[in-house]
Design a protein around this nucleic acid. Structure first.
Lengths: 145, 145
DNA sequence: TATTGTTATACTCTATAACTATA
DNA sequence: TATAGTTATAGAGTATAACAATA
């Protein structure tokens, strides 16, 4: 209920953040599409390239129902980018992992995204530090380490 | 190819922006769901509450094919949140507009979002000004006016 | 009994192509 | 002929519920 919510400065910052969000998403989807991947497929592939993951945990990471992951991994597996492995410790569990080709695709995807995020290069080190600190505070990040 | 792309500071800022994007989207979808709206429906409703809009221009705003807008507006219309009006100047055109109930829903939705974006309130005026200027530069906004 | 992954089902969003009514 | 909106179709993501295998 703070009156601050409607002051022009806050509104402009909110608007700018909205622009960042929109642009980020468009560039992500576009980069994925260039590899014939949907956004969801690209997210799962990136996750698996970082670390083989049980189906259940993929769903948690995506914040969706486990039943959806079956189809997404099916489609990645059909293209040879991902494979399902048994978990020796629990035979109910299937661990999805990126193949070598999948890892390579994930790497190219990440490079494309880094390039897409390049606008940061227009800021000096000091400005990037300021931006980092402001975003941290905005997000309530305590700097952990 | 700038070496800057991979320096730790830039990587952290990119990561923080990713967190902002994720959180923003989750909160938007959640706020929409609380009004039994999908994200796409909420975006269209917000657009129409601001201004009645021809179907074609809705598609441009959403960056999707015009054929998709038909269904989204159909569903909003079925719930009495939106109506189609003829354009007196061109009988091919249909102008979608929020009903009174639709406008009220859009207002509640926006209030919920403003609340969700409240983390900005933790920053002082000066900090918000810094954030605004940094985001503007990052986005290449020239401040127009 | 509880959990993991899957299947079956239904809904929404998405793009493409073909259609209609206007212009 | 070109344009606005729609319809038809198909693919993908999503949630829910029910199921088999395993714990």
């Amino acid at each position: 209920m703070s009156s601050r919510r409607t002051d022009p400065l806050t509104l402009e910052v909110v608007d700018l953040i909205g622009t960042v969000v929109t642009r980020y998403h468009e560039e992500y989807e576009q980069a994925a599409a260039e590899h014939s991947l949907t956004g969801a497929q690209a997210r799962v592939l990136a996750l698996l390239a970082a670390q083989p993951t049980p189906m259940r945990r993929i769903a948690q990471s995506l914040r969706c129902e486990p039943s959806n992951v079956t189809g997404i991994v099916d489609r990645l597996e059909a293209r040879g980018l991902v494979e399902r492995r048994p978990d020796p410790a629990d035979r109910r569990v299937k661990i999805a992992a990126a193949t070598e080709e999948g890892s390579a695709t994930a790497r190219r995807l990440r490079d494309a995204l880094d390039f897409a995020r390049e606008p940061l290069a227009g800021l000096s080190d000091e400005e990037r530090t300021s931006l980092r600190d402001l975003l941290r505070r905005m997000l309530g990040v305590t700097d952990g380490a």
